[in-house]
């Protein structure tokens, strides 16, 4: 039986109907057209579907859509401010920290969560915080450089 859900996605009020067993990832992608959140595994092992729920970083494949009721959801589509990129997005581009780009939305959402929680991470802390975001193209080197650079810019209030 479909359930009515009222939620907030990227600071916009959103309503949808969903089956109770459907995941937030399924609804974001297939019902709401927010395909920036990617599915790589469906089991919480790759991080491509990283989103925030009430400010906390989670895998959308491990959240039921019904749980969004009354919650605030943040997705990759909400990271940039209209056409101006977030500094994290700019740094990913500047450092060539993406190749195919499928993991990039999840990594950027995770990087934002990392830097909100820990504005001055060590490289090791960044690597462990982002361990749940698999990237098969880059070997992570340039991603970590982008993260550290973005962290420094954000600390300096850039």
């Amino acid at each position: 039986m479909k359930t009515h859900v009222t939620t907030d996605i990227n600071d916009e009020a959103v309503e949808f109907l969903c089956e109770p067993q459907h995941t937030l990832l399924h609804v974001l992608r297939n019902e709401l057209g927010l395909t920036g959140t990617k599915e790589g595994c469906g089991s919480g092992d790759c991080g491509a579907c990283s989103v925030t729920v009430n400010g906390r970083l989670v895998c959308a494949c491990l959240v039921l859509a019904v749980e969004a009721d009354g919650a605030k959801i943040g997705t990759i589509e909400g990271v940039a401010n209209r056409d101006s990129l977030h500094i994290i997005q700019e740094k990913y581009l500047e450092h060539a920290a993406l190749q195919c780009g499928i993991c990039t939305p999840g990594l950027i959402v995770s990087t934002q969560a990392l830097l909100e929680e820990n504005p001055n991470p060590t490289e090791q802390e960044a690597r462990y915080f982002l361990a749940g975001n698999l990237c098969r193209c880059t070997g992570y080197d340039k991603i970590i450089r982008a993260v550290m650079d973005a962290a420094q810019c954000l600390r300096q209030g850039a």
Partner: peptide, 9 residues
Amino acid sequence: IGSSQVQGR
């Protein structure tokens, strides 16, 4: 337990 994301749940 799991990743940062999994620990969020």
